[in-house]
Nucleic acid binder design. Structure first.
Length: 814
DNA sequence: GTGTCTTGATGAC
DNA sequence: ATCCGACCCATTCGG
DNA sequence: CCGAATGGGTCGGATGTCATCAAGACAC
């Protein structure tokens, strides 16, 4: 069954045949092949562009266009795979730029390079290229909901007089880099002119995808995972020409020509090939592609850099990729992720009786810390003067070392050999390298620290820290590094060690420590935790969870301690084999009513499995904040929500003012059906939805100062929605509860999402702003353990009357 | 020029 | 971060 | 016994609040 190709882009700009690249431009564009075919039956032998030249951007646009014509993952993968095979076969220099362009990036995230372009510059550039006014573009944007589609439409209406040289993929990539390198005064102008050049040179569909790349959202249904799979399959099927002689049919990754030969269907007449042979060859090919896939993914999650991977592949093939591109101290690996759960019951249901650790989930910033001593070559002689190199990466692998010089200093201290003796637990331990420390990668949460109260501070306070070029002396807000995992120690990867062992090493190597204020005052601690097998009592875990919530943590992280198996009810299943031989797995079946599924407790980069479960208080019914708010306005949606209102502006009821006051926007939690129904209830330019306000509500502080939330359209207030959020935040834009917490700031909601319509409530029964303020006080009170200082204001916070409390014990204030 | 305020881009959750 | 929807695969169900 | 229905897993996309920082705009 071949999935049928379905269109999912707006038909407003339909082209001829979906399999042909066509353009509204004046020149006849090159004809490119349909790339959707099964890669095993597809040959990239004929170069679709003049083969001596770099691959043209029009080819990439063709690929992107084909991708956006379908939602089928199989087709998506086929198209991408075949496209990459052309680059491998005919222009290896275009591989990496293509990978970056397809994944909406310019470089690995830990390399600080950004386009620095936004809607304003793009709109100006498009105005200048198309001759259309900004208002015309805005109208187009409201109906199309995508900058690329707007650019395509706008440029389709004009004819360029001067022919422009065709764009190449490497050329476009170079332009993107040039845009991001622009600096200093006049940057915007410079960038705009490069954008204009690109738009002028782009023809037909190229315009759409250039513009989408510039606005950093390609929306073709394929990002990282799909790209990696396609890259793996492409490398399994096609070799670069200069590498052909190294081809070996015995490679576990490379599908040799003779295998491909067998798989091909015979040209009509001599009707039969041995079916068995074909099946077998197909299986061989699939197995090898799957092997390549797991290899490339395994390498990438430990070393997420296309440049390094492609370079190693081109120089010596897949066979030595793992050794050439290893886990590297100084290069971040993808973090393990937690699966959300809604209750402790669910956690036990998922883990059965397997022992786990429950840890506090602090509300701060994830940090992956790398550190190592530079080797002798850079420090001939006095090794004592050599400082360890420390790098700190964020959840998305951005390099944030500059933001935390205090943490850098703290981590360096652990390398200090003076007087350092192995702690007793390590004495005589031979399973790791000896003391002292030489290199490490650890996982942690950085949390703002209240030195006086000896407790954590809120996330909002942490985000007040400066980010760029911070000196130790500049650090005003101390932090605590709550460490919770250790992935690498003294030149040895610990990824395949079970969590219990990694944690043992972490605990024995990193004894809590506080740096003096002169070094920024950062401290290191281990996350607070309990083990389920410590007492075996489920009640203890429940108590611990309550303790976490009271300590204003986000909740718990629950982590499997030892690799095990979970039992799943019902059904029989083929043996799981880790995807290594998909399609060829052994025919053995376990005919039991429960099936076993291995659940590793190893460090699994980028995986969201049951081995790490997060239980956040705002997932759990009855805890966390729920508000009843009134929809009073909206904006035009983008992309797939282009035909709907999204997001929606919501308001609280203000008793004192006797009117509604805007508090936050909301776009999460609505079903498509709900959006459609909303269009019926609030059709544009009607009694219920208009460009002018349709009710007595307040969105701004004053019409003059521009502070506030201004929707594209206003609703007449007539319904109440239950909204769930994680926290109440002090807001520089919201005017809700203005004056009750600060004279200049209102209150808003963190992570708002729609739960249900409250038919039973009138708008006057919506949550009142004083109740909102009360919720904030309660939360702030709990969150600082006695001292309120948000640091985000000018000090005129209303006193929440919280007396210094002594210990963390209990301080649920009256 | 310099200083201050505004705006837009980016990234943390 | 949040959530929803589409797709895919495996398994169960209905005839 | 086969095709249709169903459910879980995975992926992609649209967008929330708040913060900093760089560059632009404007006043002098």
């Amino acid at each position: 069954m071949t999935p049928s190709r379905t269109r999912n882009t707006t038909p407003a700009f339909a082209f001829g045949s979906p399999s042909k690249f066509s353009s509204s431009g004046d020149e006849t564009p090159p004809e490119y092949p349909d790339l959707g075919a099964d890669p095993l039956l597809f040959s990239p032998g004929n170069c679709p562009w003049p083969s001596s030249k770099p691959a043209p951007y029009s080819f990439l646009a063709h690929v992107l266009h084909q991708l956006s014509q379908t939602k089928s993952r199989i087709l998506l993968l086929n198209i991408l795979t075949n496209a990459l095979r052309f680059f491998i076969a005919h222009d290896t220099a275009s591989i990496t730029p293509s990978l970056y362009i397809i994944s909406n990036s310019l470089a690995p995230s830990y390399v600080p390079i950004e386009l620095g372009l936004g809607p304003s510059v793009l709109s100006k550039a498009l105005q200048s290229v198309s001759g259309l006014k900004s208002s015309a573009l805005r109208t187009l944007y409201h109906s199309l909901g995508d900058p690329g589609d707007v650019a395509y439409a706008a440029k389709a209406s004009v004819r360029t007089l001067m022919p422009h040289p065709p764009l190449s993929i490497v050329g476009v990539y170079a332009s993107l880099v040039k845009i991001s390198k622009a600096k200093g005064s006049g940057t915007a102008k410079q960038r705009q002119s490069i954008v204009e050049q690109l738009l002028l040179s782009a023809k037909g569909e190229e315009v759409r995808y250039i513009m989408r790349t510039l606005s950093q959202n390609l929306r073709v249904g394929a990002v990282r995972t799909t790209i990696l799979t396609a890259l793996a399959r492409a490398t399994a099927l096609t070799r670069p020409t200069n590498y052909a002689n190294l081809a070996s049919s015995s490679s576990p990754y490379f599908v040799s020509e003779d295998v491909l030969e067998i798989v091909q269907p015979l040209p009509d007449k001599k009707g039969k090939k041995k079916g068995d042979m074909v099946d077998e060859a197909r299986n061989v090919a699939m197995t090898k592609m799957a092997a390549a896939e797991s290899l490339i993914k395994m390498v990438f999650v430990k070393h997420p850099c296309f440049d390094d991977i492609v370079e190693a592949y081109l120089s010596s093939g897949l066979e030595s990729l793992a050794e050439k591109v290893p886990l590297t101290v100084g290069t971040p690996l993808l973090p393990t992720l937690g699966s959300p759960t809604r209750s402790l019951d669910e956690i036990y249901a998922r883990l059965g009786s397997l022992p786990f650790a429950a840890e506090f989930k602090y509300d701060g910033q994830r940090a992956q810390v790398h550190a190592f001593l530079p080797t002798a070559s850079s420090s001939i002689g006095m090794s004592s003067t050599v400082q360890p190199i420390v790098k700190i990466f964020s959840r998305h692998l951005e390099d944030m070392t500059e933001k935390y010089p205090d943490v850098v200093a703290l981590v360096r201290e652990y390398f200090t050999p003076v007087g350092a003796l192995p702690p007793p637990e390590l004495a005589g331990n031979t399973d790791v390298d000896n003391f002292p420390l030489s290199s490490l990668i650890l996982d942690a949460e950085i949390v703002a620290w209240d030195t006086d109260g000896d407790t954590t501070k809120s996330f909002q306070e942490l985000s007040n820290r400066a980010r760029k070029d911070v000196q130790l002396a500049d650090v005003t807000l101390p932090v605590c590094l709550f460490v919770f995992d250790l992935m690498y120690l003294n030149s040895k990867s610990l990824l395949s060690e079970p969590f219990r062992e990694r944690r043992r090493l972490l605990r024995s190597r990193f004894i809590p420590r506080i740096m003096p204020p002169s070094l920024g005052g950062a401290r290191l601690r281990h996350v607070e935790s309990v083990d389920s097998d410590a007492t075996g009592e489920r009640e203890d875990v429940q108590t611990f969870w309550e303790h976490a919530v009271e300590s204003r943590c986000e909740g718990l992280m629950v982590k499997l301690l030892d690799s095990g198996e979970i039992l799943e009810e019902e059904g029989e299943e083929e043996e799981e084999d880790g995807g290594n031989n998909k399609g060829t797995s052994s025919p053995k079946k376990s005919k039991r009513k429960t099936r076993r599924k291995p659940l590793p407790a190893t460090y699994e980069p980028d995986k969201r499995t049951s081995a790490w479960l997060k239980l956040k208080k705002d997932y759990v019914d009855g805890i966390g904040d729920s508000l009843d708010l009134v929809p009073i306005g909206a904006w035009h949606g983008n992309g797939r929500k282009a035909a709907w209102w999204s997001p929606i502006l919501l308001a609280v009821w203000d008793e004192k003012l006797g009117r509604l006051v805007a508090v936050c926007k909301c776009m999460s939690g609505f079903t498509d059906a709900f959006y459609k129904a909303l269009n019926d209830r609030y059709p544009e330019n009607s009694e219920t939805c208009s460009r002018v306000p349709l009710g007595d509500y307040e969105c701004y502080r004053s019409p003059l100062d521009g502070i506030g939330l201004q929707p594209s359209v206003y609703f007449s207030p007539r319904e109440v929605w239950e909204i769930r959020g994680a926290d109440i935040t002090v807001s520089p834009v919201s005017v809700a509860a203005l004056g009750s917490v600060s004279d200049t700031r209102g209150l808003s909601v963190r992570f708002p999402r729609f739960m249900r319509v409250r038919d039973d409530k009138t708008i006057e029964q919506a949550t009142r702003s004083d109740v909102l303020a009360e919720m904030w006080r309660k939360q702030a009170g709990a969150s600082t353990n006695g001292t309120i200082r948000t640091g985000v204001d000018e000090g005129e916070l209303v006193d929440a009357e919280i007396v210094e409390s002594e210990i963390e014990e209990d301080d649920y204030d009256a």
